[in-house]
Design a protein around this nucleic acid. Sequence first.
RNA 1: GGAGGAGUGGCCGAGUGGCCUAUGGCGGCGGACUUGAAAUCCGUUGAGCUCGCAAGGGCUCCAGGGGUUCGAAUCCCUUCUCCUCCGCCA
Length: 441
Amino acid sequence: MLDLRYVVENLEEVRAALARRGPTSKQSLDPIAALAPRRSVLMQRLQAVREEKNEANAAMAKLDKQSDEFKARRESLKRISDETKQLEAEERQVQVELEHALLMVPNLPAASVPDGKSEADNVEVRKHGEKPSFAFAPKDHVDLGMTLGIIDFDRGAKLSGARFSVLKGHGAHLERALLMLMLDLHTREHGYTEIWPPALVNDESLRGTGQLPKFAADLFRIAPDWQEGITTADKEPAPRRELYLIPTAEVPLTNLHRDEILDGDALPIKYTAYTPCFRSEAGSYGKDTRGLIRQHQFDKVELVRFERPATAEAALQELTGQAEAVLQLLGLHYRVVELCAGDLGNGAKRCYDIEVWLPGQNAYREISSCSWFGDFQARRARIRFRDKPGDKPQVVHTLNGSGLAIGRTLVAVLEQYQQADGSVRVPKALIPYMGGLELIK
RNA sequence: GGAGGAGUGGCCGAGUGGCCUAUGGCGGCGGACUUGAAAUCCGUUGAGCUCGCAAGGGCUCCAGGGGUUCGAAUCCCUUCUCCUCCGCCA
């Protein structure tokens, strides 16, 4: 969420920055430009009326309640009270509309972000390692996994439907080994604190990180039916308490400090967590239908940081490097691209995608996305910090990145480490986590 | 799932319709005393919004939301959270 005052005072500048994302983003500002002046006028009137009312009421307390004067004043106060209520209702309405409009506006891209309309305009920043060369036609992970008996797509579909799968034997073990390796690396080498959060969160949490209200269609929502029968005194149905399956651990990790003022000395705060992630993948019909690449449920180790504004952009570089370290440890070839303004995620100011090489697809595919959000999430979630007692609280900056998507890492290991006979070598760093197993065959 | 109880400032806790601009204590910060510290004493102590060049005003916030009233921390409705007991369960 952008700062309302900043938007109002710098309307054209903000509009220009949003235009870099595309025409739709630019238009999201229009309702705010219309509502903000109305709110301002209303607030001033309301405040004046309330002041008058407060003063008059204070005088009432000193009067004899039986006197005629008391009765007369009560009558006149009734009118002021009614006016106040009416103004309050109007103000509430404008406030709600303004809040909603503000929640729909995406973040401003950092000045350094390259121009561009789509994925095609992203800029390659660096490559690590070499594409593995094969003396045979490399298979994709679907062939490898099914032949080795370690991935079962048919039974995944039987249990849950399309975009679900089952890992079995060494496949299941590989998933577990990868998440262990990643958590160990980030906690031991990179100084992150390990968290094991809930996988179901409330709507307030999703608003904090920016998935709601704009991207509700991407989420799986749970409405407990035990609440079905509850009604309020007016026989209206009670608002349902809804929970959502997390699309990423970013949501619970970032919201850990929602509505808090952090001690400046505690910054930066760095959390990592393994969680399953759930995405409805609405609108992706026909895309990546084969294999593990795009599932409704997948595993991921996530990195989340809370930073001072001054150190946040540098922290993005460090964070990206920490995600890359996993791929380096596993000896996987990858490249890093910086997203252009048109491809940038809604809340991000700046973002690097790490793309791992998949020989079976003859393509680089995203395996991590590392973003700097500025104060966009922290303002929504009211996460602030204070350096010295007495200082004004400041909004923190948040960052997060996958470290890494485990399913896609498993795919990359299978495809990059495959051998002519269809067996797969276990990367050296993973062997201890695989109980000494060196070859999956 | 059933039956009770409770949510007040960083923390504890008083407050049962107007004298609440929220008592008191603890903690924090500043100062006095002291060679220094402790003890003691004095002062201070949240967040958001808004008017103003400023100095300085003003408004809102007692778990969240709604209501009653001229006036609500206090009364009513509702949601949430926590605690105790019973039941069930990994």
